Computed example of a mutant assay.
Amino acid sequence: MVKSGLERLLKESRKDLLDRRLGLLCHQASILPNLTPAWVALKAKFSQKLKLLFSPQHGLFGEKQANMIASYEIVEPETGVPVISLYGPRLAPEPEHLAEIDILLVDLQDVGTRVYTYIWTLLLTMKACSKNGVKLIVLDRPNPIGGKIEGPILEEKFFSFVGLAPIPMRHGLTIGELALYLCQKFSLDLELEVIPMEGWSRDMFFPETGLPWVSPSPNMPRFETSLVYPGQVILEGTNLSEGRGTTMPFEVFGAPWLKVLALKEFFSKIEGIKVQIMHFIPWFDKWAGKLCQGIRLWIKEPQTYQPVKTTLLMLKEVAAQNPEFTFRSPPYEYEWSKSPFDIIVGKEELREALITQNEEHILTLLEEGTKEFQEEVEGLKLYV
């Protein structure tokens, strides 16, 4: 079984932490293999030294839905430690919070996709710690979809809270490796430590770790969701339902007007995937209460499946066959003017290529910059 950074920290003799005031950035997936929450385990080990908890988007217990649904300050009931929200009232710790601690521990389960706000909460927290002289320790966890990458690379003009650095959509790094990359990329004057996992390798998918899957966010209920998410999250920038408001978010998608028979034919030519025509009625979000003609995705060969490429080529088909298809209007994740589709995919040219049906240009844009990113992060990788 893989040992997380949290598990390793708790088993190590860290005398350097015993007399320091600690904070912890975490969420409901920050657990030990026996499901003990990180804050309970750390409180037991360091007693009164755990001063503050910080929660990312969705709240400490993952109770809030997505897209600017804020969470607020609470007191964690089992430990009595105050929880400071980093989504809504603020997006990073404030100086008065950091004045209460000497070291900030970070234990977050990422899903390997650029459009997932926890890694950007990490970056903004790193910048705040750098300015305020607080050491930051990342307790590493698996990238559930392994070490492969897929573009496109995010362009700086589309930076937002779902992307604040020029990384690929599927980045192939652990959250600890991302912390090292972001520290180097932004030249942060930060005392940064990463406690690596034990037993993890880049060819692993989450079930191979032996660790329990706890939903890192409300619409990431299963490991299988994370397999399709790097592509299907792009649907958030369109008027297609990405399955929010159903029991299978991102694994199903559709709309009342979607021509599903033609799409089934499209998917029959895609390696690593099977599909099923499925009708569904979302109970919230896009097309709430409406019967949607839809598709369910079944990933049969995770090693060969390319989620970003598949979704973009699928959208090319949808745009060609369905005149009702459109791109979503702002706001989206605290961005009030830019196209949600553009800030999600990271390149304006991709939206244009979908409209003009230019498949060759789509595939070129997917590859642009990925080799250079691989070279940039090679020396920062903690695992083979």
Rank of each mutant, 00 (worst) to 15 (best):
K3L: 12
L6S: 01
L6A: 02
L9I: 13
E12L: 01
S13Q: 15
S13C: 13
R14A: 13
K15V: 14
D16T: 07
L18M: 13
L24H: 00
L25A: 03
H27M: 09
I31V: 15
V40L: 12
L42G: 04
A44G: 11
K45A: 08
K45S: 02
F46P: 01
S47K: 14
Q48A: 15
K49Y: 03
L52H: 11
L53P: 05
F54R: 10
H58I: 07
Q65A: 10
N67I: 12
A70K: 09
E73N: 10
S85D: 00
L86G: 02
R90M: 14
R90I: 07
P93R: 05
E96F: 14
A99F: 02
E100R: 15
L105D: 01
V111P: 11
Y116S: 12
Y116E: 00
T117S: 15
Y118W: 03
I119V: 07
A128D: 06
K131P: 07
D140H: 03
R141P: 04
R141E: 01
G146W: 05
I149V: 15
P152I: 06
K157Y: 00
F159I: 05
V162K: 01
I167W: 09
G172Y: 05
L173Q: 10
G176T: 13
A179D: 11
F186L: 07
L190W: 01
L190H: 04
E193A: 07
E208G: 10
T209R: 05
W213L: 08
V214M: 04
S215E: 13
P216Q: 04
M220C: 06
P221E: 04
E224R: 15
V228P: 00
Y229R: 06
Y229S: 05
G231E: 04
Q232P: 11
Q232F: 12
N239F: 12
G243F: 13
E251Y: 01
G254A: 01
A255I: 10
W257I: 13
L261Q: 03
L263F: 07
L263N: 08
K264Q: 14
F266L: 05
F267W: 00
S268C: 11
E271T: 15
I273A: 10
V275N: 10
I277G: 03
M278A: 10
H279F: 13
I281F: 01
F284Q: 03
G289Q: 03
L297D: 10
W298A: 08
I299E: 02
I299A: 02
E301V: 10
Q306R: 15
P307K: 02
L315P: 11
E317S: 13
A319L: 15
Q321N: 01
P323F: 00
E333H: 00
E335S: 04
S337N: 00
K338F: 05
F341A: 06
D342M: 04
I343A: 05
E348R: 09
A353I: 11
I355P: 01
T356L: 14
T356P: 11
T356H: 13
Q357F: 14
E359L: 04
E360S: 13
H361M: 14
I362P: 06
T364A: 15
L366V: 08
T370C: 14
T370R: 11
F373C: 02
Q374F: 08
Q374A: 08
Q374I: 09
E375C: 07
E375K: 06
E378P: 03
E378T: 08
L380V: 12
K381Q: 12
